[in-house]
């Protein structure tokens, strides 16, 4: 829709303040990098890069200059005479990006550009895209299912589910103040811990009952009227043998990653819990451990999965 390849049924799309609803794709001054690269297989890399510029009836020397410049930036100069089938996945992706760059657009659209690459190359290209952004400083709209890409590349993230916006914010906002359970669960790896809780008592005596973690007071500033809640705690906020709220559990799985270890624990009720530790001590499967957290690190969500705010403001 932003690119103009599909018509919108409602609302307004503006680029740099200019409403582009009725403009064809080519007049929107944007360029797009496709997941499938969409390179013309019968053309050389040079011709692929020049194709869009030729449509603009641009001077040949200028086309050459822009193609050479893009090739230099993306380090694909030795590949200019090759055809796409002679390129690796990463090289094809560079050419696809190059085709966008040469047009010097006001806006780049990236449609899951790294999805077809293997893990190692994806990390490498991610870094290159970040440096490209630093170099060009042109707005980029980047669609991804990979939250690591989203968190590392974005200045602002829009989380969409089934076509609806769940939250808009900086990576930090999304991580520290997720607007709802979907965002809480989507952002962060390993995944955030979620515990069902009930509220007992009234007024200042209200308490959260979490089952395995027992009962502890609710923050007094929280509005009344919530009987059921979901308490979420990030894996890194869960500590071994510390925290004011604690429970015992049995280690089910240990993922040793070198600099950190991810430990999967089953609580007595069967609820799974994940915690992350940087300590070198080894955990064994079957071992009983005591884990805990501080209520200050918890995120509270109502029965509908919306964040319960404790005097904080949220962009949503």
């Amino acid at each position: 829709m932003i690119a103009g390849l599909e018509e919108i049924t409602d609302g307004t799309i503006a680029i740099n303040g200019r409403v582009v609803n009725d403009l064809p794709a080519s007049k929107r001054e944007l360029s797009m990098v496709f997941q499938s690269y969409a390179l013309y297989p019968h053309m050389t890399v040079r011709k692929n890069l020049a194709f869009g510029l030729q449509n603009l009836k641009m001077d040949r020397a200028e086309i050459e200059r822009r193609v050479d410049e893009a090739a230099r930036i993306l380090q694909i100069e030795p590949l200019l005479h090759r055809k796409p089938r002679q390129l690796s996945g990463g090289q094809k992706q560079r050419v696809a990006i190059g085709r966008s760059i040469v047009r010097e657009p006001q806006l780049f659209l990236f449609d899951e550009p790294l999805s077809n690459l293997d893990a190692e190359l994806r990390v490498q290209m991610r870094v290159e895209l970040a440096s490209l952004y630093e170099r060009l400083k042109t707005t980029m709209i980047y669609v991804t299912h990979d939250q690591v890409e989203a968190m590392t590349l974005a200045t602002r993230i829009v989380v969409l589910r089934a076509g609806r916006i769940e939250q808009v914010g900086t990576p930090e906002e999304l991580y520290t103040k997720p607007a709802n359970l979907f965002v809480a669960g989507f952002i962060g790896s390993p995944k955030i811990n979620m515990f069902d809780a009930t509220v007992t008592g009234t007024g200042a005596d209200r308490k959260l009952n979490l089952g395995d973690f027992g009962t502890y007071p609710l923050p007094p500033e929280l509005a009344e009227g919530h009987e059921r809640m979901t308490v979420c705690v990030r894996p890194e906020a869960i500590k071994l043998d510390s925290g004011s709220v604690q429970a015992e559990g049995r280690v089910r799985l240990v993922e040793y990653l070198g600099s950190e270890t991810i430990v999967h624990v089953d609580l007595p009720s069967g609820t799974p819990l994940i915690f992350q530790t940087h300590q070198m001590e080894k955990h064994r499967v079957g071992e009983v451990v005591r884990v805990g957290y501080d209520p200050a690190d918890q995120h509270l969500f109502d029965a509908d999965g919306q964040r319960l705010m404790l005097g904080e403001t949220l962009v949503a």
Partner: peptide
């Protein structure tokens, strides 16, 4: 995709 890319490039 090839036609979409061409559309964005303003190809006749």
């Amino acid at each position: 995709d090839l036609y979409e890319a061409a559309d964005i490039d303003g190809t006749s």
